[in-house]
């Protein structure tokens, strides 16, 4: 019942998609996962189950959240082999990159993560999310920049659903800033995808390692 990623962007019915978002404490990892889950569950009428690591291990240091999206009820709640991995720290990359499913998508905060041994057979996208967030004057919205970028490069969910989920997940006073952050990440991603489609894949930013796509 598992669908390949290639099908995801072409089907109206959401296939089972496992996503892991990871980074360090304070980056808004959990909120990023909530936005993705909420977009699917509330704004697309699909199913989403989010889990996260808790306890002392989640205070400072590393932080990780998992979201499973599906057009059908989700039974097993934990992610085993993510289709999409979003990482915002070197440590998270080191821990989780090997678990990414072959043919999966790796999204990184490119200024914070150095890809030394890229996993084989994954599509890889980088975004300078912290820098883009800083351009908006608030570094804290880097997580929402990542979500915008995620929307542009994965096509798993409608960008509009994700945008609504962002607005729904932050306090009213922070809405404008976060929506700007989302748009900034989305535009960056859309441009990247466009450049790739033009055939001018920027080798420094996009590394497509096809082994079994």
């Amino acid at each position: 019942m598992q669908r390949g990623l290639s099908q995801l962007s072409h089907t109206t019915k959401l296939g089972l998609t496992e996503i892991r978002v990871a980074g360090f404490g304070g980056q808004g990892v959990i909120l990023a996962a909530i936005v993705i889950g909420k977009a699917a569950a509330i704004f697309e009428g699909a199913y989403a189950t989010m889990t996260q690591s808790f306890g002392p291990e989640a205070r400072g240091g590393s932080s990780a959240a998992q979201v499973i999206l599906s057009g059908e009820p989700i039974l097993y709640p934990y992610v085993t082999q993510p289709d999409i991995l979003v990482v915002m720290s070197q440590e998270a990359y080191a821990v989780f990159s090997k678990q990414l499913k072959p043919g999966g998508i790796l999204i990184v905060e490119q200024d914070l993560v150095r890809i030394d041994h890229p996993p084989q057979g994954v599509r890889f996208y980088g975004v300078p999310a912290t820098r883009l967030a800083e351009e908006l004057g608030r570094k804290v919205v880097l997580n929402i920049v990542m979500v915008g970028f995620f929307a542009a490069v994965t096509h798993v969910l409608e960008p509009d659903s994700l945008r609504k989920a962002v607005a729904d997940s932050v306090p009213p006073a922070m809405q404008k800033l976060n929506l700007q952050a989302f748009d900034k990440g989305f535009e960056y991603g859309a441009e990247l995808v466009h450049r790739m489609a033009e055939g001018g894949g920027d080798a420094e930013q996009v590394l497509t390692l096809e082994s079994e796509a």
Binding site: G37, A41, Y47, A48, T49
Partner: peptide, 10 residues
């Protein structure tokens, strides 16, 4: 159980 308590869904 902790899993149900900490799992986020619609």
């Amino acid at each position: 159980d902790e899993c149900v308590g900490h799992m986020t869904e619609k």
